[in-house]
Design a protein around this nucleic acid. Structure first.
Lengths: 290, 290
DNA sequence: GCAAAGACACGCGTTTTCGCGCGAACCCGC
DNA sequence: GCGGGTTCGCGCGAAAACGCGTGTCTTTGC
């Protein structure tokens, strides 16, 4: 009664995904191999781990127990890999940065350009996403996030404080200035589909004209003059044909952070990147507030 | 940068043993395989893990780090295996009992006999040793130990309290009774090579005649009439040709315990064994004290 | 009621891994 | 200085693991 560690890993993947094919894809092997390894694990442990059903493998209680401990082993492994990576003093190899899509173009690109010139041996990869990538699973080494705090077990530095304000196309902004009493058509983002309170106080005639679930589309609509959007200063200022609607008040917005796991934060590549990143944002901090 | 779990296991074994051959023997594979897996692990991690020396592999700091975390993964695995084994409700398969060598013959044998008759499907294995086997590494399921407390993370039950006293061959005992003032020749065990204080008070003329490092040899010498030994009651009473030297006082001695890991303690096979073991010792508890 | 899709079982050919044997380098004791 | 023992490196044949293709069953949607 002793099991191959990779077989335990396979059981974990199968419990997670439910089907041989999905587990195999996760592990990077064919589903046939998953089936064989599970069979071997069942034999080694002397316990039935799955019920073979037409729509997938259903884990038994024992399999859940195995998966639980395999998950702990996996955690140990990822921590190990982080520590090794953090001890890496070489300025070569892969470095994965993740950042909000719309921050990359106007603000991160110069840093990236400079970094690759100084450290050509580093294989720099950018993951542009608004989702929070799981740094623990090493989906990225360093994350630039717009959040109130660095979060869980992460270490980080605040790159700059932020505010947001109302922006609209030049013509739309002029129209509002000419007739402040007219109803303002708001374009809002899906996660908070209401009109900001401070703006509503100033202009009670506001109404939500459309709701978007994509920031780029929202900006496009604003550029086309469809209405007023409430976005961070950096975004409004770096988007062509948008101007701030002056008398609508700015309001607080989460700050910009650079965060990473403690070990990786101190690694050579991340440290080198930070020496460029932090001054760059600090020099432009006035772009992010009123 | 992602490593096979079995490769990490191999690095752990190699750090532990220092040479390819020893690590291979531990893992049950050839040393060639160990060398190959280590090479693969180094490539996967992008770090040098060992310095190849003429007399073995010397681990780098990174390898020690890997071994540290692989050790944690191993701990998770052994805990898992214990839990699975503990959930096993079947009265079949392997059951490993360890007990002090000299307790087995006179006291454990009847229990073993009875158990194998009632549960013939259980593959009962006895490990007779005075060393403490590592229950955590699953070297044994249930241990019968002579100790003051069950110890670390173990659960257990006290089978009986114990005392020890002085025993000698019939003739030697008579000789002492006839002439209490004559010098008593003691045969003592190597871990405590001194004459017990209480006995020395009664018979100040005692002297250490020989020191033994093996209990069976010590008993043999006592049986041959070479001197007086200080042993637990059960041992003196179950050894032929030995009698208690009456006026030398008994003294305390560690109790007899049955101990196991919590999970395994409740497993079906261990529980079944306990239902025979405990009453057996309880019924004979007077054999262990004056 | 029937077609399409998803999921598993099984068998076959291929790739990878493993163990063995030989030779070289080194340490140790004499 | 010189054998004996131990350890590692390398190449080859055997064995195990792997991926792919096919067939069967079940579910789902029309």
């Amino acid at each position: 009664m002793d099991a191959d560690w990779d077989d335990l890993k396979t059981v974990l993947a199968l419990v997670r995904h439910g089907t041989l094919a999905a587990a195999g894809a996760d592990l990077g092997v064919s589903y046939t191999t998953v089936a064989r390894r599970v069979q071997r694990a069942e034999q080694a442990l002397g316990e039935k781990l799955f019920e073979r059903l037409a729509d997938g493998y259903r884990p038994t209680d024992t399999a859940r127990l195995v998966a639980d401990y395999a998950h702990r082993m996996e955690s140990e492994q990822t921590t190990l890999l982080r520590k090794i990576q953090g001890r890496d003093r070489r300025l070569s190899g892969k470095l994965v940065i993740t950042a909000p899509q719309l921050l990359i173009g106007p603000y991160l690109a110069p840093v990236l350009d400079q970094f690759t010139r100084i450290h050509p041996a580093v294989d720099l990869q950018i993951r542009a996403t608004n989702d929070l990538l799981d740094l623990n699973r090493r989906e990225a080494d360093l994350a630039i996030r717009i959040h109130d705090s660095p979060g869980d077990a992460l270490i980080g530095v605040r790159l700059c404080a932020q505010q947001r304000a109302s922006f609209a196309s030049t013509e739309a902004a002029k129209r509002i200035e000419r007739d402040p009493a007219a109803p303002i058509p708001w374009l809002v983002f899906a996660d908070r589909p209401e009109i900001p309170k401070a703006a509503q106080d100033r202009c009670p005639n506001g109404r939500v004209r459309m709701v978007f679930d994509d920031m780029a589309a929202l900006l496009g609509a604003a550029q086309a003059g469809l209405g007023v959007v409430r976005i961070p200063f950096f975004l409004g200022r770096s988007t062509p044909w948008l101007v701030q609607v002056p008398f609508l008040p700015p309001e607080p917005y989460p700050d910009v952070w650079a965060v990473a796991y403690d070990d990786i934060w101190r690694s050579a590549k991340v440290a080198a990147f930070r020496t460029l990143l932090v001054p760059h944002f600090r020099a432009r901090r006035q772009d992010f507030v009123a």
